Amino acid sequence: MKIILVNERGATRSFNFGGLSKALLGLCLLGLPVGAFLLGTNLSVVETDLFDARTAKAWERALRKQQEEIGAADRAAREQLVALTVKLAELQARLTRLDALGERLTAAANLDEGEFQFGTPPALGGPEDPQVAGASELPYQSPGFLDVIDDLSQQIDDRQMQLEMLESLMANLKLEDEQFIAGRPITKGWMSSRYGYRTDPFTGRRTWHKGVDFAGKMGSDVVSVAAGVVTWADERHGYGQLVEINHGNGYSTRYGHNSALKVGLGDVVRKGQVIAQMGSSGRSTGPHVHFEIFKNNRAVDPASYIRRTGR
């Protein structure tokens, strides 16, 4: 076998091969493509195997991380749901207590039935706004969990407002009751002289008595028949030790002939409060309290006020 090689300059060179050389050369030429194919196939398989394994592990890690995040979100959602449920229960319990309190206060104040309505939804209303496009065509949606909580909060606000109004009304009623003149100015004793004409115990003449007298034990309690402000607490001619109280609305009362005074000028007194101790100071024949009631600066008969039992 003879092989001729030609270079760039056109020069030639020939090689002669024997039988053995030709066999080896043929084998090499035939083995090069087969070896290249097999090597490429092995490298491709190795690279493909390495890519699939890494990808699988990466996916596995990503999936595991997502599962952990989903689990954490689920736990947080459940915790929030439990907290909201507890809050809802607290709001419902608070609303129940407010309703019960409001009903008791309404009954205690003897208010007209229906003026304050606890335990029923507040009255609502109003015309539909035609300017809102498609407002009447919106589909019905059931209230959500947060909507229920908002509704409860609104109901509690409504009850709170009613209770505040009721408290103010009851305070006014209590003030009116405290200022309402009723009862006797003593805790023990009896009426010894009435309002009107009588025989004066010192002169024996027929004179006008503009109050009533209550006799009793020396030093026994003298009480205010209504709440008010003390406008006199001192000695006064004819009255001895006198307490005078202004009750507002044109009313005032006087308590005379006391042995000791328990209040001072400007003091605010409650109904039934002890203001003095019974005595015989001033123009008096024995321990008693001289009780007068003035309406618009004019003395009136205390009898009708004494018989009152209060509001």
Results as ranks from 00 to 15, higher is better:
Ala182Leu: 12
Leu152Lys: 02
Thr199Phe: 01
Phe214Leu: 03
Gly114Asp: 02
Lys87Trp: 09
Asp200Leu: 01
Ser153Tyr: 11
Lys87Thr: 13
Leu173Asp: 12
Leu166Trp: 05
Phe118Trp: 02
Met191Gly: 12
Asp151Ile: 06
Ala171Phe: 08
Phe116Pro: 11
Gly125Glu: 03
Lys217Gly: 15
Ala215Asn: 03
Gln162Ile: 01
Ala93Tyr: 05
Val222Ser: 04
Gly125Trp: 04
Gly219Ile: 02
Pro130Cys: 03
Pro185Ala: 05
Met191Glu: 08
Asn172Gly: 14
Asp158Phe: 12
Leu124Ile: 14
Pro122Met: 04
Asn172Gln: 15
Gly125Ala: 05
Glu167Ile: 12
Arg94Gln: 07
Leu105Glu: 09
Glu164Arg: 11
Glu103Gly: 05
Gln162Val: 05
Val212Pro: 00
Arg205Tyr: 09
Thr199Arg: 00
Gly211Lys: 00
Gln117Glu: 13
Pro139Gln: 07
Lys87Pro: 05
Ala171Gly: 11
Arg206Ala: 08
Lys217Ala: 12
Asn110Tyr: 12
Leu166Ser: 07
Glu178Thr: 13
Gly216Pro: 08
Glu128Ser: 12
Arg184Met: 14
Ile149Tyr: 07
Gly102Tyr: 01
Glu90Arg: 10
Ser192Ile: 02
Ala93Glu: 09
Thr96Cys: 14
Asp158Gly: 11
Ile156Ser: 00
Glu103Pro: 06
Val222Lys: 02
Lys217Cys: 10
Thr187Ile: 07
Thr85His: 04
Ala107Ser: 09
Val148Cys: 06
Gln141Pro: 04
Pro139Ala: 06
Gln155Leu: 13
Glu167Tyr: 09
Glu115Tyr: 10
Ala123Trp: 08
Ile156Gly: 01
Arg184Glu: 15
Leu175Cys: 05
Thr120Asp: 10
Pro121Asp: 15
Ala109Leu: 03
Ala100Cys: 03
Gln154Phe: 11
Gly216Ile: 04
Met170Ser: 04
Met170Val: 13
Asp112Glu: 14
Gly125Asn: 06
Ile186Tyr: 00
Glu90Gln: 15
Tyr140Arg: 06
Thr96Lys: 10
Met218Ala: 11
Leu101Ile: 14
Glu176Val: 13
Ser136Thr: 08
Pro130Gly: 05
Gly211Gln: 02
Leu173Val: 15
